[in-house]
Nucleic acid binder design. Structure first.
Lengths: 352, 352
DNA sequence: CTGTTAGCGCCTTCAG
DNA sequence: CTGAAGGCGCTAACAG
C-alpha cells in the first residue's frame, strides 16, 4: 500500500526527507519513546502497541537513522576504513575480499578509499575517514610519511598497516615474509648457476620494494656476488611499464639469464615481454635463449604461463583477514599493548 | 606537542571520546559557534580568533564529526552503497574500481557489501545501507526479487542495477550487450561449421545467464539449429566448478567441438579442463581433438591462453563509471524521470 | 564580527 | 508499561 497521500494531513508528515520516529509515533498514535523501544526489540511494550508501531513502520517504509542513533549513544560508526592503492590489482582485490569477510562477520562495514599511490590523497582520505567516525583503519600506505599513522595523528583510532610498513612506526602491521621469499627465490636461481639475474620491482622507498630487494641482495651475498646494477629496474607500477622494463633488459648486450619479478604486475609484464621476444626470435629463425623467471605473488593463470615460471606464493585474502583480526583485537583490548608486527609465510611453487 | 595532560583541569576535558567543538571552544576561549565558523572556512571571523581556534584544533588533534554535522544540516551521508557478489572475481573488482573513480571525484565515498549471491544477506545489507543514510546504491543483484529495488522499498534512495537486472523493475540499470555478444560469438562458431556447441554459464534465473543463453539460442535458430541439451551446463560460479563442468562435456561420447563460456570464471575453467585433457591425450599418444572456445568477458592473460580463444570483450571499469554517473544524474535531477536502461557495447577479439 | 538559542533523529534517564 | 525531558555534536537562524 505504501501510503501515497503525501502532503497535508497528519498521516505521514513526509514533506521531504525520510520519515522519523516522530512520524511513526504519529501514525501509530504512541510516543516516540515507544517507537524507539519497539525498534530496539520491543522489551517492555504492550503487544498491542508493538503491533501498531510495527504496522506503521511497514506502512511508511521507515528505516532507523543509524547515524543519529550512534551519535546519541556515543558510539562510533561501525565502519572500518580501508585504504588501498588500486582495486584493479588482483592482489589488493584479494586482500579487500579477506578484510570484508572478517569485517562483515563482525557486523561492521567497509568504507573504501583508493589512493592511487598519491600521498596527498591518502592524507585527505584519512581525515575524511576520521571525520566519519571510523572505528579503525586498514591501510596499504602510499607514502613515506610514518608520522601520519601515529596514534596522535589518528585521534587514537587504531590502524593496521597492510603489506607495507615503515621502519619506526607505532602501529600494527601485517606483512608478507618479503625478505625470506625474495632470498629463497634468488638463491635458487643463483644455485642453478645463473650469475646475471635481473630484478623488476617497486621503488625501495616502498617497504615491499626495499624488503624484496634486500632478500635479492642477501642471496647474491651468500653466493659471493652482488646484484648487477644494469639489471635492476625499479618503479614499474603496472603491467605495461613492467613489460617495457623487461624489454629493456632483453635488449641489453648481455641480457640476464634469469629474472626475479618482485610482484605480480612485474611478473606478468615480464611474461609478456619474454613471450613477444621469443616469437620475434623464432620469426628470425633463431633459437631463443631460455629465461629463468621467478615472481613474487602468485596469480590466476600463473600455472598456465607460456613461459616457465616459479612463484613466491601467498594468500592475499588471508593477509586481509589477519589484518582485520588484528584490528579487532586492538579494538577489544584497547590500545594499551605495544604494536605488533606479523609476517605471513610464503610458499615456493614451480610451474613447468 | 599534542597536549598530554589529560585528566582534570579545563584544558581539554577529554575524559573519553574524541574532542568536540566545545572542547576546542574552551581551549581557544571562544564560543562553539566561532569554532564552527572557522571549521567552515572562517568567513566573518576576526583573524586573531581564527588563529586561536586553529591552534587549538591542531593542539588537541580535532576532527569534525561529519555525521553530527550532516544530521544537523539535514543532508544524507555522502556515501554510496555498493553491493557486489564477490570481490575476488576480477570482473567485479574492475567494476568497483570504475565506480570508485567517479564516486571519489564527486567527493563521496563507497561503502561496500559483498552478498556472495545470498539473497537474505543482500536484503540485510540493503537495510543496513539505508540506515546509514547512503545517498544512492549501485547493486549487482543476487536474487530474483525485483520488489526490493522498487523506490518504496528503498525509501526513495536511488539505485542503479549493474550488470544484472529484472524484467519489470522500476530502477535504472546498466548492462552489457549480453544478447548480441553471445549471439555473434555463437553465430561465428556455427558459421565455422560447428554443430555441437557447448554452453557454460550462469543459471537463467540471473539476467546475464538468461540473456547470454538467449543470444546463444538465437544464433542456433538463425542456423536452423537448436542448442543441444546435453552440452548446456549452468550454474558454475567459480573456476573449479566450471572446470568440472567442462570435464564432463569432454567426457561425453560425442563431446562438443566448440564451446561458448558465458563469463570469465567459466572461460578459465574451460581452459584448464581443455589443457589438462589435451595433456592426457598426448600422454596416451593420441592426437587431441581441437576445441573452439569463445568466452564472454576478457581477462588479464586471455591473450596468453594456452588454448586458442576468442572473447566478447568489454570494459568492466567503464561499466562501473557509467553506473556511478547514472546514479549522480538521478540524484541531481530528482527521481522524476523514468528508469533508464543502458547497454554497453562489446567487442570481439580473437587470440591465436 | 560574535554569541545565544534551538533542534536535526535518536535514545538514556527519570517520573509516572 | 509509558511518556516527558534533555542532550549526543553540530550549525542555521536570530540577536546583539
Amino acid at each position: 500500500m505504501a501510503a501515497a497521500g503525501n502532503g497535508s494531513g497528519p498521516t505521514t508528515g513526509r514533506g521531504r526527507g525520510a520519515p522519523t520516529v516522530k512520524d511513526i509515533a504519529r501514525v501509530a498514535e504512541v510516543s516516540p519513546m515507544t517507537v524507539s523501544r519497539v525498534l530496539s526489540g520491543g522489551k517492555n511494550v504492550r503487544p498491542e502497541l508493538q503491533d501498531r508501531v510495527e504496522r506503521a513502520i511497514a506502512e511508511v517504509g521507515y528505516h532507523r537513522n543509524e547515524n543519529a542513533r550512534r551519535l546519541r549513544q556515543g558510539r562510533r560508526s561501525g565502519l572500518v576504513g580501508v585504504l588501498i592503492t588500486n582495486v584493479g590489482n588482483p592482489y589488493y582485490a584479494g586482500m579487500l575480499q579477506g578484510v570484508e569477510e572478517v569485517v562483515g562477520e563482525a557486523g561492521r562495514r567497509i568504507i573504501i578509499g583508493v589512493t592511487n599511490e598519491d600521498e596527498d590523497l591518502e592524507q585527505q582520505l584519512l581525515a575524511d575517514f576520521l571525520g566519519r567516525q571510523v572505528e579503525g583503519l586498514i591501510v596499504v600506505p602510499a607514502g613515506r610519511e610514518p608520522a601520519r599513522f601515529a596514534p596522535d595523528a589518528l585521534a587514537g583510532v587504531p590502524v593496521v598497516l597492510a603489506s607495507r610498513t615503515f621502519p619506526d612506526v607505532s602501529a600494527d602491521a601485517i606483512l608478507l615474509d618479503d625478505i625470506h621469499g625474495a632470498f629463497v627465490a634468488t638463491d635458487r636461481m643463483l644455485a642453478e648457476g645463473h650469475t646475471r639475474v635481473g630484478f623488476l620491482g617497486n621503488q625501495v622507498s616502498v617497504s615491499t620494494g626495499r624488503r624484496r630487494f634486500e632478500g635479492f641482495r642477501q642471496a647474491h651475498e651468500r653466493h659471493g656476488l652482488e646484484p648487477v646494477d644494469e639489471l635492476v629496474r625499479l618503479g614499474q607500477q603496472d603491467v605495461s611499464s613492467a613489460e617495457q622494463a623487461m624489454d629493456q633488459l632483453l635488449g641489453l648486450e648481455a641480457p640476464p639469464t634469469a629474472v626475479f619479478a618482485a610482484n605480480n604486475r612485474n611478473s606478468i609484464g615480464a611474461i609478456r615481454a619474454i613471450t613477444k621476444s621469443r616469437a620475434q626470435a623464432r620469426d628470425r629463425g633463431e633459437q631463443p635463449a631460455p629465461i629463468r623467471l621467478f615472481g613474487f605473488d602468485s596469480f590466476e593463470f600463473a600455472d598456465m604461463s607460456p613461459v616457465p615460471l616459479s612463484v613466491v606464493a601467498h594468500d592475499a585474502a588471508e593477509l586481509g583477514r589477519v589484518a582485520a583480526r588484528m584490528l579487532f583485537d586492538r579494538l577489544d583490548r584497547g590500545d594499551g599493548s605495544a604494536p605488533r608486527l606479523v609476517e605471513l609465510p610464503v610458499e615456493f611453487v614451480d610451474f613447468a
